[in-house]
Structures are given as structure tokens and as C-alpha cells.
């Protein structure tokens, strides 16, 4: 089980990577490599060129600019896990982080890589959707921002163009009224979840408003449960569960019926987190 042959180029600048992608349509970008390398080893993917972007300066880092948190694409999971800025201003990311893989994976895996790969069972894409974040991308035509609602297109498919590189994600910075919730059910710690739920809301007196529920592991992309959001904002958890209209497929770990049931259980658990007063 060895990868098919490929060439390798470590680039130092985004422009260099973008140009190389233009010249090599079979090229793949290599960031943390924690998903890509496994597919290469299994020959599920056989690019002719790997463009290693780990040497591009300025793409890692976590910064707050007023009411926005910007996380560079090459920020490793472990950096986010230990970041005070994340803990304070992006608590949903902080809640999700311990569920992602294992220590050695989090040491290498990047946040940008996870969002670009867009595994429908992964935690971070759902967090991004729940937070109504933005993806920043750079391509031959320059830089652009993509709203999360426009970003996830299909199974492992995003709005990124063939020569575009995800450079950062931007999230609204949490304040005193931000509420977040996160839960997932995986048969073993660190595995992809059977079903998971990332949620954000704003405190509204004793209730909630702007509720965003983003499920993962139940479709081709992370999915909002908009009807349940409205019910939850109305303070009715039972109605929110009843309003779930997910339509998952059977997979190896669980049937659609199990996933739907568990989605309801998670909603109750996450709703309880959202109701809690949070620091």
C-alpha cells in the first residue's frame, strides 16, 4: 500500500501555488495531509504533483479584528485547541476540538485543510456553518470571501475553484450574549461521528435568538435544521425535535433511522448547552 508516483513542490508563496495549479490540473494541495495522505497511500487518489503549502508564510495564526476572528488556513488543530483567543472568542471551535481525531492528528491537521476537504462527517465544517462564518480564498483572479451558506456544494465539493486556495476562515467573535453547543456520537473517541451537532445562538432575555443548528454525518454536506432553529428560538425543545427534517442515508455505522433518532437526542443535549449561561 504505497502511493502512486508523484512529483512534489514546496512553495513559498500563494502565487506560486496558484500558478502551479494552473499548469498541473492533476495537482493536489498538501496542507496537514491527515486525510490526503491516507487516500494517497491507498491509491484512491493519484495526483501527478503535490504542492506543499506548509511553507507559505502568514497563513497560520489566530487573530481578533474587532468583532471577527480570523484563523489562518495552516493553523494546526493543536494551536486552536490551546489558543486563549479561540477559547474566549470562538468557544464553539474550542468545544469541538477535543472530538477531532487524536493528538498526533491534531498536531499536523490544519483547520483550513478540514474546511477545504469538507468531509460531511467532520466537525469543523459544521462549526463554520453554525457560526455563519466566511471562507477566504485566493485564486488567479485574486482574493474573495465566500459565505458558508454558499460554500458547501456537495459531497467533498465546495465553492473553491480549481485554482483557488483557501487562505483563512473568519468567524464572528463571541461576546457575552453568544451561546454555543456541541455534541457528537461516535462509537470510539476520535472517530468520525455517526451524527453530530454544532450550534450557535444569541441570548435573548431568558430565551434564544439567531439559533443556528448545523448537523454533520447526516448528508453530503453539513446541514442546517432551520425549522428546528425556529422552534428552539421559540423555547420549545420538543417542537424543535419534532421539526427535524433530516434525511440521512444508511451507512456502515448506523441506519438512517438510528441517525434520525440520535439527531433528536443530540438536539436536546445541545439545546441544554445553549440554555446554560456561558462564560
Amino acid at each position: 500500500m504505497k502511493p502512486a508516483p508523484f512529483a512534489y513542490k514546496k512553495v513559498r508563496a500563494l502565487d506560486e501555488a496558484i500558478a502551479l495549479m494552473g499548469e498541473n490540473l492533476d495537482a493536489r494541495l498538501l496542507a496537514g495531509g491527515q486525510s490526503l495522505m491516507a487516500t494517497l497511500n491507498m491509491r484512491l487518489s493519484a495526483p501527478n504533483l503535490l504542492i506543499d503549502i506548509n511553507g507559505i508564510g502568514g497563513l497560520d495564526g489566530i487573530a481578533r479584528n474587532g468583532d471577527t476572528i480570523e484563523i489562518g488556513a495552516l493553523t494546526r488543530h493543536v494551536q486552536a485547541e490551546r489558543s486563549d483567543t479561540i477559547a474566549r472568542y470562538a468557544p464553539l471551535i474550542a468545544r469541538a476540538m477535543p472530538f477531532i481525531g487524536h493528538a498526533a492528528i491534531r498536531n499536523r491537521g490544519t483547520l483550513g485543510g478540514s474546511i477545504a476537504f469538507a468531509d460531511p462527517a467532520a466537525e469543523l465544517p459544521a462549526c463554520l456553518l453554525a457560526l455563519d462564518g466566511e471562507v477566504t480564498a485566493q485564486g488567479p483572479k485574486g482574493k474573495r470571501s465566500i459565505r458558508t451558506s454558499d460554500y458547501f456544494k456537495g459531497l467533498y465539493e465546495t465553492a473553491l475553484g480549481p485554482q483557488e486556495i483557501l487562505t483563512a476562515i473568519r468567524l464572528p467573535a463571541a461576546d457575552g450574549n453568544t451561546r454555543t453547543g456541541f455534541a457528537e456520537l461516535a462509537r470510539r473517541h476520535g472517530d468520525y461521528a455517526i451524527v453530530g451537532l454544532a450550534a450557535s445562538a444569541r441570548a435573548d432575555g431568558k430565551g434564544l435568538k439567531d439559533v443556528r443548528l448545523a448537523y454533520f454525518g447526516v448528508g453530503n454536506t453539513p446541514l442546517r435544521a432551520t425549522k428546528s432553529e425556529a422552534a428552539l428560538a421559540g423555547g420549545d425543545v420538543d417542537a424543535a425535535v419534532a421539526a427535524l427534517d433530516l434525511d440521512p442515508h444508511d451507512d456502515i455505522q448506523a441506519s438512517a433511522a438510528v441517525k434520525k433518532h440520535l439527531a433528536g437526542v443530540l438536539l436536546r443535549r445541545v439545546a441544554a448547552q445553549l440554555m446554560e449561561r456561558q462564560p
Binding site: Y8, K10, L30, G33, Q34, M37, A38, N41, L50, D52, N54, V78, A103, A104, I105, N107, R108
Partner: peptide, 13 residues
């Protein structure tokens, strides 16, 4: 200085 999976990194990296 940090642990990694040796199968998920390339030598050239």
C-alpha cells in the same frame, strides 16, 4: 518536537 503519524507525512516534507 511534536508527535506525528509517520505514515501521514512524506519524507520530503
Amino acid at each position: 518536537g511534536v508527535i506525528v503519524r509517520g505514515c501521514l507525512m512524506l519524507a520530503v516534507q
